[in-house]
Computed example of a mutant assay.
Amino acid sequence: MEVQNPAGFWNRLGGRLIDAVIVTVILGIIFWIVYGEFLRDGSSIFDTLGVAYTVIVPVLWSGYTIGRKLVGNRIVRKDHRNVGIGKMLLREVVSAFIYAFSLGIALIVSAFMVGIREDKRAIHDFIAGTYVTHNPPGKM
């Protein structure tokens, strides 16, 4: 199926950055309340909750996270349906291992793919069979 109204590099990056700030602030406040520190050094719970946010929220909210909603893009399956937990795990977790294993080279390649390709799909989009669109739910 054809990719419709794909979101470009800067739009996607903006959504990710907004999400990173939101997750850091919210979890930082929780850590401050619980531990008396804004962010606790070496805490894997921070990473786990951050990944859970990027995997679960788009499944529950038609491909949006808070940052994506603010910049006007969402993640959808290549067949234009909403993403499920399996697609999001492939997209976020499996691709993170690939990016780490390649020492970040695959991440740089992905950034160029989003900037250059007509369909704006990155490596993680190909792994999961997804793309990022400006189209709201129901307008495919």
Rank of each mutant, 00 (worst) to 15 (best):
I98W: 12
V34I: 14
G15C: 04
A128S: 10
I30G: 02
G84V: 13
L70P: 11
G84E: 12
I22G: 00
G14E: 06
I22D: 08
S95A: 13
I108F: 11
G115V: 00
T24Y: 11
G15L: 04
M113S: 00
L70I: 12
M1A: 06
A106C: 07
W61F: 09
Y131N: 00
G104I: 05
Y99P: 04
G84N: 14
E92S: 01
A100D: 06
K120F: 00
G63R: 10
T24M: 06
G63E: 15
F97V: 14
Y131H: 01
E92N: 12
V34E: 07
L90A: 14
S110W: 07
S110K: 03
D47C: 08
V93Q: 03
A128E: 02
V57A: 06
I22C: 03
T130S: 03
N11F: 02
G15P: 12
A122I: 00
D47H: 01
R74S: 04
F46I: 10
S62T: 06
M88F: 12
D19Y: 06
T24N: 13
T133S: 03
F97Y: 13
V71A: 03
R12V: 01
V3T: 11
A128M: 00
W10N: 01
M88K: 07
V83E: 07
N135K: 15
S102N: 11
L27A: 05
R121K: 12
K69A: 08
I127R: 00
R68K: 14
I18Y: 04
I127M: 08
K87R: 05
E37W: 10
F126C: 01
G50S: 13
K120P: 00
L49Y: 04
K69V: 11
R81H: 09
E2D: 15
T65S: 12
V93N: 03
E92R: 02
V59C: 15
T54Q: 09
P58S: 11
M113N: 01
H134W: 02
A106G: 03
L103M: 14
A128C: 05
G15A: 15
F31Q: 11
W32R: 12
D119F: 01
L27T: 02
Y131M: 01
L89W: 12
R16T: 09
R68A: 03
G86F: 15
L89G: 05
I98K: 02
R16P: 02
G104A: 04
D47R: 09
K69P: 09
